[in-house]
């Protein structure tokens, strides 16, 4: 069995609902003050340190890893490989430049004029 509510409870609920449905309006002055406070308290954008900006520009940590690997190979090549491989052969009167065979039409391009 459903108990009917006292009429004063119903009336109070109606009054409370009416108050809820008609909230007091915020004045433009108040909103302006709130926004002014918001802007003055807003944290300034934090700049990243220079090293992080460079890292980001290069492509991040994966790119840096590739650069490091390349640098290591270069250092290794300079320290391990023999001079015979790296340095050109000294010029002599009897030296002849063997340009190989099979260059086709490009062989004349290799002859100094």
């Amino acid at each position: 069995m459903t108990q009917s509510r006292p009429p004063e409870d119903t009336a109070l609920d109606a009054d409370l609902a009416a108050m809820r449905d008609a909230p007091p309006g915020v004045s433009e002055a108040l909103m302006a003050k709130v926004m002014a406070d918001a802007m003055s308290e807003m944290p300034k954008a934090v700049r990243a340190p220079l090293w992080r900006q460079i890292l980001t520009t290069l492509g991040g940590w994966p790119a840096m890893a590739g650069l490091a690997a390349t640098a290591c190979v270069g250092i290794w090549a300079g320290g391990v490989l023999s001079d015979d491989v790296l340095l050109p052969a000294p010029a002599t009167e009897s030296a002849a430049l063997d340009i190989g065979e099979g260059l086709g039409a490009f062989d004349l391009l290799l002859v100094e004029g």
């Binding site: 108050m19 926004m35 918001a38 807003m42 944290p43 954008a45």
Partner: peptide, 27 residues
């Protein structure tokens, strides 16, 4: 977003919450 310096977030927060707190304070 506001804490990162987003002005639009500041406006959205102000518009959303100022009426709530003002109405509660009035009552």
């Amino acid at each position: 977003a506001y804490a990162r310096g987003d002005a639009k977030a500041a406006q959205a927060l102000a518009l959303r919450y100022t009426p709530l707190v003002y109405a509660h304070a009035c009552r």
